[in-house]
Amino acid sequence: MSLMTIIVKMSEGLGKTCAIFFLTLIFAIPLGMIVALLRGSRFKPVSWFAKTYISVLRGTPLMLQLLAVTYGPYYLFNISVSRNKLIPVVIAFSINYAAYFAEIYRSGIDSMPVGQYEASQVLGYSKIQTFIKIILPQVFRRILPALTNEIVTLVKDTSLAFTVSYQEMFTIGKQIANSQTSFVPFVVAGVFYYVFNVIVGFVMGRIEKRMSYYKM
């Protein structure tokens, strides 16, 4: 198999790689915020629940979580494994990344000076207004570098979808590597991920720059 054929075949899976990546971001970014807010709840059972969630999701391998979400329903309830593996894959990625995002959000929220809350309170802002208008934009700016780190990791982690044979780029590459006893597909995969992350780094850099019109 020629290098060109390998590249073409593997790029056919890039759409699915991107699907995991973008859908995970779309779900995990808000879900992480919810988990972070629950963790900060003054109602103990709620914060305990969020802490346990974070602890378990961060403390076990993403690969196991992928397997559990994809095949768990079959073993537990005898529900047939869904044809479209994208759904369980995105669920597993989203709940896993939400745990990491939640901790990043928390670090940002905790780093906000109390004076911002006090000024908002005296000016009569409601708690929700304070959070959305005053706190969140500043938190987002503070955590952007940490968020970029996680997003770069997510790009590479999409390759774990091979464990449930979801036909994304790396899964296809691995299949070619096995059938052709060739290392070339892995090199191609490495280049694909690197280019993807260069783009991610560029985009996040632009966002950071756009948000740096003020100093804290």
């Binding site: 000076p113 004076g115 911002q116 006090e118 000024a119 005296v122 009569g124 409601s126 003020y214």
Partner: peptide
């Protein structure tokens, strides 16, 4: 209480302006 908050204003020692 928020109705009362409209009656007064407070200037802080370290300003607490909204930087963004």
């Amino acid at each position: 209480l928020n109705d009362f908050r409209h009656i007064f204003g407070l200037v802080f020692q370290n300003f607490n302006l909204f930087p963004h």
